[in-house]
Simulated assay, not measured.
Amino acid sequence: MPIDRPHSVSVSGVIIDDAGRALLIQRRDNGHWEPPGGVVEAGETITDALQREVLEETGITIALPAALTGVYQNMTSLIVSLVFRCEAADGNPVTGPETRAWRWAARDEVAELASEAYAIRVLDALDTMNPPAVRAHDGVKLL
């Protein structure tokens, strides 16, 4: 079946603190908890988009290079998301126009806060010894 539009590409950054917790944000538009991120804009490199999105949503500048930890394909919305494990270089978490709240979440808290499709991204990023994951989902559940 032909698709009348291409997939869009997004990036997310999983910032991990010294205690091994991941920074999650609660989005203003839908109230969901997830790692900070968004769509790669035309003419923007993947790393530029990653730095921009994380800074816009958290107030934190990340260090590069960041480690790719997974590729996630939303089969419903036609979005391919590249997720990176990141280290904070400067700044502290803040709320803003896109972010209602933020919190550092331990591994066992991630699945309680985020839907399966987003929790797995954070859990994959916390598993530093594994190669990047490649997963498909329907926007909520893994397929």
Rank of each mutant, 00 (worst) to 15 (best):
R27G: 10
I62H: 06
I79E: 13
I62G: 04
T95G: 03
S81N: 13
A19L: 12
S10L: 06
I15N: 03
L123I: 10
I60C: 09
Y118N: 13
A106D: 13
V140Y: 12
V39F: 01
A63V: 11
R85T: 12
E57N: 06
Y118T: 08
L142I: 15
K141C: 14
W102H: 15
E57C: 06
L123M: 11
H7E: 15
P36L: 10
R107T: 11
I15H: 04
E112T: 14
T45Y: 03
E87M: 13
I15P: 04
D29R: 14
R27C: 10
I60H: 01
G38W: 02
A22E: 04
S81D: 11
S81I: 00
T128V: 12
V110E: 03
Q26V: 00
L143G: 03
R135F: 04
D18M: 11
N74H: 09
L126Q: 08
N30Y: 08
N30H: 14
A136P: 00
T47I: 06
L142E: 12
P131Y: 02
E53D: 07
S115V: 13
A66Y: 10
L23H: 09
L123R: 03
A63L: 12
L82N: 01
T58Y: 06
Q51D: 05
R5M: 08
G43P: 01
R28P: 03
A114I: 08
A117L: 09
L24D: 10
A22G: 07
E109R: 03
G37H: 01
T76C: 08
L123K: 00
V40Y: 03
D48A: 15
S115D: 15
V80Y: 00
P65L: 10
L24I: 13
L64V: 15
K141N: 15
P35N: 15
E44A: 07
V134Q: 14
Q26E: 12
D124M: 04
G43T: 01
T69K: 09
W102Y: 15
A89L: 13
A49I: 05
M1I: 05
S8V: 14
I60M: 10
G37Q: 05
A105I: 10
R52T: 11
L23V: 11
Q51C: 11
G91R: 11
L123T: 09
S115E: 14
E56R: 06
R52L: 08
A114D: 09
P2C: 03
D108F: 13
I120K: 06
E87R: 12
K141F: 13
F84C: 06
A49D: 08
T128N: 04
E98L: 13
I3K: 05
S81R: 15
A89S: 13
